[in-house]
Each structure stands twice: as structure tokens, then as C-alpha cells.
């Protein structure tokens, strides 16, 4: 047993310290101009994608369900939280929200984020129910349909801008804010999956009937996985809306859901570490291609549109599926994420 300092193990402290170190490094590079604001923005988006990938991994990778409408939950979180903050910003125009020192503004933001997460969790709870009767591909279609329905609904609600999207969202999300929330989300999900509840989820993935017949309430756990996964997706959606200052129905389409799915698969089903690395790698790859491909086009004197980026992405997905045996991490975790007492008998086989 490791020494407990406020119930936090030494290893977890090391993990947090390491992450904070990286944050400081980024802030330092940004201050000295080595990292442009553009790079910091990509890091912001990567961090948000980390939350999305890890939370989808909880549903697909750990519990063995098959959800491909994850951005639907993010949309719910984004619209909910952004509606609250824009409303309050309108009612109390004197609060300078965008300043970090303004505590009131941030309290409002955090509460709005939580609300967004909770509403998304409520939707996740409902979406969990079809998972009780449906498996695999059928469930995939239902979740896909759900994502599209959510989008259609936001597209048709005038109060949140309809097809124009919700504009003028106050910019609350910044690197530090996103970093802290991402870190907390990752730790929460890590704590969950390395617990007895996490093992219950894994057993559903491994063999649902056997799981039920060793006493796991599989109904409850499947719905729990959807609820918790949706909660964090909602938080991520809220963070993103307050970073980009817009919530638009097309932001939460099928494509983004698939990108998150690729992150989960590329990183390894059931590996938090893998999802983190893949979220960063693929976000940077995507942004890199956005600049590299037109650059390449300039060299070859042809115009290369954004579509080629998606061609590369989809080829990547096919190649991963065709050649993967254990992509990136497989089911392994980095040591810092494995609790000391699970050193030998975690699922990192």
C-alpha cells in the first residue's frame, strides 16, 4: 500500500504533478512566443477531445457497448451551458466575465457546465435503455439516430439560433480551465474503471450473461456507463462552446462522433492512456493536415480542399481496423494511472 495523503496515492500525485508540469511548460512556451496562440488553441481542443474520447471509451471500450452518437451528448451539454451563460451575460452586463480574476463569472460558468453535464447525463440515461435490448450494430444505429435527432432538434429551435447556431457565447474556457477540468475528468474515470464498479463494467464487455450470473446488475451498470459517459461528454461540449464562442448544429454531426470513435479505437479499447495519446495525436494530425495538404497543393500547383483531410482520416480508420491487433496501447495503461494496489492484477495484461 502506498502512503495516502488525503486519500490520494503518491502515484496519483506524481501523475498530477507531471500533468501540471506540462501545463506550466506550455504556458511558458506560450509566454515566450515559442508556442503561438494557434498551437495553444490546438492544445485546448486536444484536451477537450481527451474528455470526449475517454468518456466514449467508458461506454464502448470498457463496457463493450457501441455508441456512435457521442457528440449528441456534447451538443446537449454545449447548448444547455451556453444558454445559461449567455442569458446571465445579457441580464448582468456589468460582470466582466472574460477576466480570470472575476470569481463570480467563473462560478456561473462552472455551475453552467455542471448543469450541461447533468442534462446530458439525463439524456444518456434515456439512451442507455435501448442498450438493454439491443446489441452491437443495432445499438450503433440507435445512437447514430439519436445524434441526428438531437441535431435536428437544435436546428429547429429558434431560441438557440436554429440553423444559424448559438452565437455570442462568453469566452470562459481557457487553457488552465480546460486543463483542470480535463485532468479531473480523467482522474474520475480512471478511479471508476479501476474499482469494483469498473470491473463490473468490464465483465459486461467480456460476457454479459456470465456477468449477470455472477451477480452483476448488468441493466444498472449499462445505464450507469451511458449516464456517466454522457455527463463528461456534456462537460466537454460546454467547454468547447465557451472556447469557440459558438454552438452550431453542424459542430455535433456524425463526423465528429466518428472522429472521437477513431480516437478510442486508435488508442485502444479500454485504455485511458491510449485515448489521451490518440486524442492529442489525431487532433494535431487533423490540424496539421489542414495546413500541410494545401501547402503540398501549392507545391504541386493544384488546389487541395479540406476534403482530402477527411480522405486521409477515413483511410486511417480503415487501415487501423484492417491491421490492428493491439493499436497503440491495447488495453494497457501507463504506470502512473494504475493504482498501486492494482499493480499486478489490473486489466493491463
Amino acid at each position: 500500500m502506498g502512503k495516502k495523503i488525503f486519500f490520494i496515492s503518491r502515484r496519483m500525485l506524481l501523475f498530477v504533478a507531471g500533468a501540471l508540469g506540462m501545463l506550466l511548460l506550455v504556458l511558458f512556451f506560450n509566454a515566450t512566443g515559442i508556442f503561438t496562440d494557434y498551437i495553444v488553441q490546438i492544445i485546448n481542443i486536444s484536451l477537450i477531445n481527451v474528455i470526449l474520447a475517454v468518456s466514449l471509451n467508458l461506454i464502448n471500450g470498457f463496457t463493450g457497448q457501441f455508441s456512435i452518437g457521442h457528440m449528441g451528448f456534447a451538443a446537449v451539454g454545449a447548448y444547455t451551458s451556453a444558454t445559461v451563460t449567455t442569458l446571465i451575460a445579457k441580464v448582468t452586463p456589468r460582470l466582466p466575465y472574460t477576466e480570470f480574476i472575476n470569481i463570480n463569472g467563473y462560478i456561473v460558468f462552472i455551475l453552467a457546465l455542471l448543469l450541461g453535464g447533468i442534462v446530458a447525463a439525463g439524456i444518456g440515461f434515456l439512451i442507455g435503455f435501448p442498450s438493454l435490448r439491443l446489441k452491437g450494430d443495432y445499438l450503433a444505429i440507435i445512437t447514430l439516430g439519436f445524434g441526428e435527432i438531437i441535431r435536428t432538434i437544435f436546428n429547429n429551435i429558434d431560441y438557440v439560433g436554429g440553423p444559424r447556431g448559438l452565437l455570442g457565447i462568453p469566452k470562459f474556457s481557457n487553457l488552465i480551465m480546460i486543463f483542470v477540468i480535463t485532468l479531473l475528468s480523467v482522474i474520475a474515470i480512471r478511479n471508476l474503471v479501476f474499482s469494483t464498479h469498473g470491473r463490473a463494467l468490464l465483465s459486461i464487455r467480456e460476457n454479459e450473461l456470465a456477468s449477470e450470473l455472477v451477480g452483476v446488475n448488468t441493466v444498472r451498470y449499462k445505464i450507469t456507463a451511458f449516464t456517466i459517459g454522457a455527463f463528461f461528454a456534456g462537460i466537454a461540449g460546454g467547454l468547447q462552446a465557451h472556447l469557440l464562442q459558438i454552438a452550431h448544429p453542424t459542430q455535433y454531426g456524425f463526423l465528429y462522433s466518428i472522429l472521437v470513435l477513431i480516437m478510442v479505437y486508435a488508442g485502444g479499447m479500454g485504455s485511458i492512456t491510449g485515448s489521451i495519446i490518440a486524442a492529442f495525436a489525431l487532433t494535431f494530425l487533423s490540424e496539421g493536415l489542414r495546413t500541410a495538404l494545401p501547402g503540398l497543393g501549392d507545391l504541386m500547383h493544384v488546389k487541395i480542399g479540406d476534403e482530402w483531410r477527411m480522405v486521409v482520416y477515413s483511410l486511417l480508420l480503415i487501415i487501423i481496423m484492417l491491421f490492428r491487433t493491439e493499436v497503440l496501447m491495447g488495453m494497457r495503461e501507463m504506470k502512473l494511472l494504475v493504482p498501486e494496489e492494482e499493480e499486478h492484477h489490473g486489466q493491463h495484461a
Partner: peptide, 22 residues
């Protein structure tokens, strides 16, 4: 056989002891 194949032998057993925890 319906074993939780990719989990460790110990985890297979620990899952059975799970229910009192929930």
C-alpha cells in the same frame, strides 16, 4: 465456458465478489 477472457484470473474472481459493493 463463459470466462471473462481478457481479464486476469484474479479479476474473474473479484467480479463475483462485487455485488455487496454496489
Amino acid at each position: 465456458l463463459r470466462i471473462f477472457g481478457s481479464l486476469s484470473v484474479l479479476d474473474n474472481i473479484r467480479i463475483s465478489r462485487h455485488y455487496t459493493v454496489g
